[in-house]
């Protein structure tokens, strides 16, 4: 490597280094990988969603034909798709608020000066987040077991009769929701805890002097001060929950009678079990569209709160 004179190594006004080729070499591997394994696939999937790409096309690409909007019209007239859509939103609409509520409760309580053993408690609530999803799904399948499961046993103390939770179309989704809340609330709790630490103590002291009770302080100080954090965790939770897959895959395989079939599970089945890849691609884009709309709504709300 040739020695460089001082002139060549000057910084620009923003304190950035000027170098002709080096930065390109540094970003090149990432750009190449992202192009090959993300950009091109997403574009291909988009094109694929307008074809009848199936198991024959898998053997020979030339068998795939453009079919226009056929996949999408099939999708929207398929009751299984609407069932999966309904299930996913059922999971989302009930599961996300429950998760956020549990997380906020745990965070506010852990933040209280009254509580001891804070770091142990925090780690305990966080343990399910770190645990492998597949493994805890397996464990919870037994928690819900009608013969020796922990849930029926716990409920028996409250006089609730035994249920076969996961085999009942009415109860299978609520069971998965409870499991998901257990698995995920610790993550949201950590974010809330960080948010709580940014609220100045003096606000609470002033409110106390003015005679505000604990409930008033919670609703008038904690909740509004946490609004940006809440918005962030809401979006993260919604996007995560829209991609529900491993839980029903392990615990119910989408059943009974499709009552826990999610969009991503349906996509997996269509794409990788039945090799209806064109159809599966259109499903993937419906999912992407929903996520995109949610993200846009979030950005709009965030923009409004900032200008307000």
């Amino acid at each position: 490597m040739a020695k460089k004179t001082h002139k060549e190594v000057m910084q620009d006004r923003n304190g950035l280094l000027s170098q002709s080729s080096v930065p390109y070499i540094f970003v090149a591997p990432s750009v190449v990988l992202l192009t090959v394994f993300f950009v091109i696939p997403v574009i291909t999937a988009f094109l694929m969603s307008f074809t009848d790409f199936d198991i024959y096309s898998l053997a020979n690409l030339h068998f795939a034909r453009f079919t226009g909007l056929q996949n999408y019209t099939n999708l929207f007239s398929d009751p299984v798709f609407w069932k999966a859509m309904f299930n996913t939103f059922y999971f989302l609409v009930i599961g996300a608020p429950l998760t956020i509520f549990a997380a906020l409760t745990a965070a506010v309580m852990l933040n209280s000066k009254l509580v001891r053993f804070k770091s142990i408690l925090r780690a305990g609530f966080f343990a399910p987040v770190v645990a492998t999803l597949v493994a805890v799904s397996v464990v919870w399948k037994y928690v819900y077991d009608p013969h020796f499961g922990l849930l029926n046993y716990a409920l028996s103390f409250f006089g609730v009769s035994s249920h076969d939770w996961l085999s009942n179309p009415l109860w299978a989704m609520p069971a998965i929701i409870v499991f998901a809340v257990w698995k995920n609330f610790g993550y949201t709790m950590m974010i809330f805890l960080a948010g709580l630490q940014t609220i100045p103590e003096t606000l609470y002291e002033a409110a106390e002097i003015d005679g505000a009770g604990p409930m008033q302080r919670f609703w008038r100080i904690t909740v509004p001060m946490l609004a940006p954090t809440t918005l962030f965790v809401t979006v993260v939770t919604l996007i995560g929950y829209l991609q529900l897959f491993a839980e029903p895959y392990i615990m119910t395989d989408g059943g009974p009678v499709d009552s826990t079939l999610s969009i991503v599970l349906l996509m997996y089945r269509q794409g990788f079990r039945y090799w209806q890849m064109g159809y599966a691609a259109s499903l993937a884009f419906v999912l992407a569209a929903v996520i995109f709309v949610l993200t846009m709504i979030e950005m709009k709300i965030q923009g409004e709160t900032r200008t307000a």
Binding site: F37, V39, T44, L242, F272, M277, A284, I291, F292, T295
Partner: peptide, 16 residues
């Protein structure tokens, strides 16, 4: 790219 969920590209990535 963070806006697009990973599942969208999965089918073509599998083929690649």
């Amino acid at each position: 790219t963070m806006v697009i969920p990973a599942q969208v590209g999965m089918l073509p990535v599998f083929l690649i």
